[in-house]
Amino acid sequence: MWTRHHKKRKIGRLVLPAVTIAFLGYFGYHCIHGDYGLIAAEHFEKRRVVRERELAALVDQRKTLENQVALMSDGSLEKDMIDEKARYQLNMSRPDEIVIFNSYFKN
């Protein structure tokens, strides 16, 4: 009876570490550079901060507009406010007046 003996190959010892390194390298790369990785999270954070600033500016603008509407609503109608707003919108004044526009009512 013949028996075959195989030599142990050194390449077989490197297969599992090579697969492990490839696996970790793939997921490590995508953990940093992927769509939801660390770099993308940094970009999302920068955009979030910018949007929060824009939101704060819009909230302030809305409060200003709400105050203007409250001044012109029924019961507390102020003629000076209506006159000022109409002059600004129509860009008109009397000949004996000096008009200095403030950026208060700009859109």
Results as ranks from 00 to 15, higher is better:
Leu55Ser: 07
Lys106Gln: 11
Val69Glu: 02
Lys7Trp: 10
Ile11Lys: 07
Glu52Arg: 12
His30Ile: 02
His6Leu: 07
Tyr26Arg: 06
Arg9Leu: 15
Tyr26Cys: 03
Lys46Ile: 05
Leu71Phe: 03
Trp2Met: 12
Glu66Ala: 13
Lys8Gly: 07
Leu14Arg: 08
Met1Thr: 10
Phe44Trp: 11
Gly34Ile: 11
Asp60Tyr: 02
Asn102Cys: 09
Ser76Lys: 11
Met1Ile: 01
Met72Asn: 02
Met81Glu: 13
Leu55Cys: 06
Met81Val: 12
Met1Arg: 05
Ser103Arg: 15
Ile21Gln: 04
Ala40Glu: 06
Tyr88Glu: 11
Arg4Asp: 08
Tyr36Gln: 12
Leu24Asn: 01
Val19Thr: 09
Glu66Trp: 02
Pro95Cys: 04
Ile100Tyr: 09
Glu54Gly: 03
Tyr88Phe: 15
Ile11Ala: 13
Phe27Ala: 00
Phe44Cys: 06
Asn91Asp: 12
Asn102Ala: 14
His5Arg: 15
Asn67Ile: 00
Cys31Tyr: 10
Pro95Glu: 13
Leu71Lys: 13
Val99Leu: 07
Val99Cys: 06
Arg53Lys: 14
Glu84Lys: 11
Leu58His: 12
Glu42Gly: 01
Gly75Pro: 01
Phe23Gly: 09
Phe27Arg: 01
Ile100Phe: 10
Val50Cys: 05
Gly75Ser: 00
Leu16Val: 14
Trp2Gln: 13
Asp96Phe: 05
Gln61Lys: 10
Ala22Glu: 03
His5Tyr: 15
Ala22Met: 02
Tyr26Lys: 05
Leu71Glu: 03
Arg9Ala: 15
Tyr88Lys: 03
Thr64Ala: 13
Met92Gly: 06
Arg62Ile: 15
Ala41His: 05
His5Phe: 14
Phe44His: 12
Arg94Ala: 12
Ala18Pro: 01
Thr64Tyr: 02
Glu42Ser: 07
Arg53Gly: 05
Leu24Thr: 05
Val50Trp: 09
His30Ser: 02
Arg94Glu: 14
Lys106Asn: 06
Pro17Ala: 06
Ser103His: 15
Tyr26Gly: 01
Glu66Asn: 11
Glu54Pro: 03
Gln89Thr: 15
Ile98Trp: 06
His30Asn: 11
Asp83Gly: 12
Gly37Trp: 00
Tyr104Ser: 02
Gly25Ile: 02
Ala70Trp: 04
Asp96Pro: 04
Ala86Ile: 10
Leu38Glu: 07
Thr20Gly: 04
Lys46Ser: 00
Ser73Asn: 08
Ala41Cys: 02
Asp83Glu: 15
Asp60Ser: 10
Gly34Phe: 07
Trp2Cys: 09
Trp2Thr: 14
Ala40Phe: 00
Lys8Asn: 09
Leu77Phe: 11
Asp96Ala: 14
Ser93Arg: 09
Ile98Glu: 14
Tyr88Asp: 00
His6Ile: 05
Val15Trp: 04
Ala41Arg: 09
Met81Cys: 08
Glu66Ile: 08
Asn91Trp: 03
Leu77Ala: 07
Arg53Ile: 09
His33Asp: 02
Asp80Ala: 12
Ile32Lys: 00
Ile11Asn: 07
Glu52Gln: 10
Asn102Trp: 09
Arg62Ser: 14
Ile82Lys: 04
Glu52Met: 07
Leu14Tyr: 13
Arg94Pro: 04
Cys31Thr: 08
